[in-house]
Simulated scan of single mutants.
Amino acid sequence: MRLIILKELAAMPDGRCNESILADAVYACGHNPSRDVLRTQINKLGELGAARVTTIGSILVAQITEAGVDHCLRRTKIEGIRQPRLGA
């Protein structure tokens, strides 16, 4: 799920999404996590340095970092996030 979230962030024009949009992306890839599980994964991306996570009201918003972009492009590897497939 972390890689799905990271890829979704990378696809956004400004590199950020709220948790509702990320939930839809994760669901579209065959996962159906609870909101709490999704929030845990988003916060883990923040801990790993792949995203900056902020709370606006009661909603989490994540923004991809340079390290997250580098991971998506296979320039570097962040332990704890599956590495993207070549050409994916």
Rank of each mutant, 00 (worst) to 15 (best):
I4H: 02
A67E: 13
T54Q: 14
V53H: 06
A67Q: 15
V26C: 02
T40S: 09
R16Q: 14
C29S: 12
I64T: 03
V53N: 03
T40M: 03
R16T: 06
L48I: 10
A23T: 04
V37M: 07
A51D: 10
V61L: 00
M12C: 08
K7Y: 02
T54R: 14
I64W: 05
Y27K: 14
S34Y: 05
V69S: 04
T54M: 07
P13F: 06
C17A: 15
G30N: 10
D36Y: 11
T40W: 00
A62P: 04
L45R: 01
N32V: 08
A50P: 09
L45S: 06
S34R: 12
I59C: 02
V26S: 01
S58A: 12
L73Q: 14
S58Y: 11
T40V: 07
R85N: 04
E8S: 15
D14N: 13
R85C: 00
E66H: 08
G15D: 10
R82D: 12
E66I: 08
H31A: 13
I42E: 01
L73C: 03
N32E: 15
R85S: 12
L60Y: 10
T40H: 04
V26I: 12
L22P: 01
S58I: 09
L38M: 07
V53L: 03
D70S: 14
C17H: 07
